[in-house]
Computed example of a mutant assay.
Amino acid sequence: MSREVRRFEARAASADAYLLGEGPVWDAARERLLWVDIDAGQVLEGRLVGDSVRVDRGHEFGETVGAVVCDRDGGLLVAGRRGLLAVKGGDEPGRPSGAGDSSGNGAGGERAYLVDLVPEGKDSRLNDGACDPAGRFLVGSLALDDRHGQECLYRYETDGTVTAVDTDLALSNGLAWSPDLSTMYSVDSVPGTIWARAYDAVTGAYGERRVLLEISDGTPDGLCADVDGNLWIAIWGAGQVRCHSPEGEHLATVEVAAPNVTSVAFVGPRLDTLLITSARTGMTREETARHPDAGRVFLADVGTRGLPTSYWSGPVSG
């Protein structure tokens, strides 16, 4: 007998609305939020201030930015349109990143282009990414033309080499790992599939994919896991985040006042607040009028805690 689905409601928390907000990350050492506006080519740094999200700094890249993660020194690894870039860190733990930069638009630290991932001549861009528990960076791609089933999930190894984990995806998206680190979850948005596979965080060995869940009433986008191993999945087109058990059972729904919900992360010192990003790109004027909070960052209290962010452990220069 299935359990009753719990219901929650998110609250808008950012002053600004973003074109395609994505990929939230909680940097515990600096109590810092990171996320991207893909279409604006921007990485945002901010923090929680009471019940709101405040932006401290923005990094402009002049191209789409699919994802951002950070290393233990506060440096950033950024998925640009086709490859990866590093932004040198150096902020002191506990000091708000960008403190003293009143513009909120600082260029940040020294930058280095690390590696191309999308092959020359392939009309694709990099999309969502995350670090595995050992600090390797995984990032997927999506097609910018009408190709189907040729997109990749890449893994940037700590020695600077690249592994193609998957090469047959339609639109690679969210990534998460189970609390015991033995299972990796990944999203292929176009078919609406959440995959699960065995994963060895120490060696990096991984098993064959299996279908955990298929979603047809909306498009699964980003996701994260909580301390109980449940998955919180952003559903583009449905205005919801849905929680599913490791067996796929629907446990909870978070209603969001934005139809295109993009990603989720547990944030805050206790990792007990669910942060939700959304998008307004592609919406008509009428749709935007009906959903004025579309594109904003949202927060929700859902009665559980998330898992600590894994820091990037790879190279900081090309």
Rank of each mutant, 00 (worst) to 15 (best):
P315W: 02
V297G: 08
R3V: 07
G237V: 01
A238Y: 01
A258L: 07
V190A: 11
G106K: 07
E151P: 00
E22M: 04
H59L: 15
N260F: 09
L84P: 13
V78P: 03
P308R: 06
W35V: 06
T304H: 04
G83D: 02
R11C: 00
E22Y: 00
D145Y: 10
L48M: 11
Y113K: 13
R47T: 03
C70W: 00
D188V: 05
L251E: 10
G268H: 02
C70Q: 06
V267F: 04
T277L: 08
V139Y: 07
L20G: 00
A265T: 07
V264H: 09
T161I: 00
D56A: 10
D221E: 14
G41P: 02
K88C: 07
L142R: 08
L299D: 08
G314R: 04
L275W: 00
L77P: 05
A294C: 11
V43L: 06
V162I: 12
P191W: 03
T163C: 10
A29H: 10
V211Q: 13
V261D: 05
D123M: 11
E247C: 04
P96Y: 04
A294Q: 11
T281C: 05
Y18T: 05
H250L: 15
W236A: 03
A112T: 13
R30S: 02
V190H: 12
Q42G: 01
T64Q: 10
A294V: 08
A294F: 01
F137T: 04
D226K: 13
E214S: 11
S103M: 06
S178R: 15
V190G: 05
S141H: 08
D221Q: 08
E247K: 10
R155D: 09
D301E: 15
G295S: 13
G268C: 04
T273W: 03
A258Y: 04
A289L: 12
L231V: 02
S97G: 12
G94C: 06
S317N: 10
A300G: 02
S102H: 13
D101L: 12
I215K: 09
L126H: 08
D226S: 10
